[in-house]
């Protein structure tokens, strides 16, 4: 598991370090928490890896302003399992059980931003499953989509697509 270190620096800039002196990569979350990870973990994150490659490995502290210190450990946990070849159905089921809808969405964005293909595919499936058989209103709320149809347009669409609404789950209260 990544070591969590409070960052002393307020305004974090990319620090130049000698690659041979530090084998680990520091990932800095949006709220300035530093996570030290093995370089192999960074390889799973294409965005991070290309950043390292483009600076010839000189830069090993990488700011990830879009990812919070709440989400980053999940991402790192998944990547660790992935490089250990231990992504099983059981692990994924346990992993997703811990996450509420909001966290799934945040992790999805993080996976997209870091370009972690496996995690992105997995979370796509989770999202697809969570909106399956749900009402239009539920899915709009889930995705935060604003309805830009006029009431007439929407009514016409609903009539044409009435067959898709058979057997839709009743809306329960959003989980969060």
């Amino acid at each position: 598991m990544a070591e969590e270190v409070s960052s002393q620096m307020n305004s974090l800039s990319i620090s130049e370090t000698n690659p041979s002196s530090s084998a680990t990569i520091s990932l800095v979350s949006g709220d300035d928490i530093v996570f030290k990870v093995e370089p192999t973990i960074a390889k799973e994150m294409e965005t991070v890896q290309s950043f390292i490659d483009e600076t010839d490995g000189k830069i090993t502290t990488i700011p990830l302003p879009n990812i919070s210190s709440h989400d980053l450990p999940y991402v790192i946990e998944y990547c660790e399992k992935s490089i250990a070849g231990k992504i099983t159905k059981e692990f994924e089921a346990e992993f997703v059980k811990k996450l509420n809808n909001e966290e799934v969405k945040e992790l999805f964005l993080a996976a997209n931003y870091l370009n972690i293909k496996k995690l992105l595919d997995f979370l796509s499936q989770v999202i697809a499953d969570r909106i399956a058989n749900k009402s239009v209103e539920y899915v709009r709320r889930y995705f935060g989509i604003e309805n830009d149809f006029t009431p007439e347009e929407e009514a016409k669409l609903r009539e044409e697509l009435a067959w898709t609404f058979t057997g839709v789950d009743p809306d329960d209260e959003d989980e969060n």
């Binding site: 595919d121 499936q125 697809a128 399956a132 239009v136 995705f143 604003e146 669409l157 898709t164 609404f165």
Partner: peptide
């Protein structure tokens, strides 16, 4: 598209009512 491809056609079609 990737998310839609993982859904049933029925659910995927229903997303056409979400927004333009």
């Amino acid at each position: 598209h990737h998310i839609l491809s993982l859904m049933s056609t029925k659910d995927a079609v229903a997303t056409s009512i979400l927004s333009k």
